[in-house]
Amino acid sequence: MADSKKRPPCVLGFYKTVTHVTGDICGGVLITSHLGRPIEFQCSLPVRPNATQQTLYGSSLLPFLKGELIAEALHDKLEAKPDIVFVDDPEAVSDTIWGTIPVLCFAEVKDWLSRSIKGKSASLSPAQQERFEKMEPLLKQHVPDSADLSEPLVRVEQALKEAMGQAA
C-alpha cells in the first residue's frame, strides 16, 4: 500500500459558474486526473456586481464577472495547475486569464475555431491553437476514449449549487 503523490500524466481542469436567483454568481474549478478522479476543487464565494461594475461594463458585465474576475481568483488559488481547461459557457471563456493553459469550450464561441475532442465538438481560441496542439497528444494518450469530458462540469455545477445553498 503506497500513497500516490506524483502528478498524473495529464491534469484536467473544469470551470463553471452558476447564477443564483438573487443574481449572485459563483464559480468553481475542479481539477481531476486524466481518469476524472478529483485532485483539487476551488470555488468562489457568491459575487454580486456593484453599481459601478454594472455601469462600466454594461452588456459585457457577465463575461467580465465569469470570464475574468472569478476565473482569475480561482486560477490564482489553484495549487495543481491543469494542462487544459474545459468550460461550457461562452461567457466564461477567456484566453488571457488562464495564461498558457488552453481553454476549450463545449459551445460555439464567436470567432473561435471548431475542434473535436473525444467525440465532442468544442471551440478553441485561435490564439491558443498552437498550445492546444502541443498538449493534444497527451489527451489522446491518457484520457480514455470512453471518457465523457463534459461530465465533471455537472459535478462542479452540483457542488456550486450545494455551496450556494449552504451560503444562502
Binding site: M1, D3, C43, S44, L45, L56
Partner: peptide
C-alpha cells in the same frame, strides 16, 4: 482606474490515492 477586489475562494482537498 478600475480595481475590483478578488472574490474569496474555498478549497476542497482530496486525499492522495492509495495504490495497491
Amino acid at each position: 482606474k478600475p480595481f475590483w477586489q478578488k472574490p474569496k475562494t474555498i478549497q476542497v482537498a482530496f486525499p492522495d490515492i492509495i495504490e495497491f
